[in-house]
Amino acid sequence: MNTPVIRLAPTLASRNRQQLLALLPAIAIQLWQWGPPALLALASASASALLADSLGLAWRRQAIWPGLRQGEALLTAVLLSLLLPDAAVPLLCLCTGGAILLLRQLFGGSGSSLFHPVAGGLLLAAPWLPAGLPHADIPLSLALLAGGLWLLWRGLLRWQAPLGLLLVVLIALPVGSGWLLGQSALWLLAGWVMSDGSATPITPRGRLVYGQAAGMLCISFVTLTTQPDAGVTLAACLLLLSASAPLLDRLTLSPGPRT
């Protein structure tokens, strides 16, 4: 195999590292808000994710270390521990490991998982989450927004789907969707889950449609039902729409004009 002399884009491992780097401010704020237990949760979620990933790789007879080196398992663990700050540690470990095993490894590894493990993990943990209206977390949201903008500047964020979601939320402000903007889960899912390629359509047009559909579904659920948690609702919408990604691909992907 020939290796191209010139690399114009970071490798997969480097991409994931930079995505983790963009989460650093949010992690710092969470540690400041929740103290040492958050650190414990983060560490145990990471350990569980790495264990589940290596188990899955071994079961699929793949090389374990090159797979783990890409850092996708670690990214999933960090995202889930940011999304579930008030969950018990065993629950967090269980849903992290379960999501990775069920939604990534069972589907054939990263790249072929149709449903994003973070959204799936959030949905797995939803029944045991403490009920009650989650409060707006403005500092965390701002930290996530800053991280997302940095990723965008680095050229690592596929911005079409998040843009579609934000557009719908802004248009629906008169209906009363403004409180969604203060939810850290919205920013996290928009910046780190909706920008992932394997669970979304591959064309820019398809991604825009995907983001808008997710926004509309989420807002209609939140305003029409009594489900209070925006994060869980959005995660469910994303999972639902991921199933339509192949259809959107079929509709928007074409070989192009012959020359």
């Binding site: 195999m1 992932d196 591959i202 192009g256 004009p257």
Partner: peptide, 21 residues
């Protein structure tokens, strides 16, 4: 190098000068 599976990032399609997929 060890090639990793395609993550469907779409960068190849956006950079292709012949507008291929």
């Amino acid at each position: 190098l060890t090639a990793q599976p395609c993550i469907r990032c779409g960068d190849c399609a956006s950079i292709c000068p012949s507008q291929l997929q």
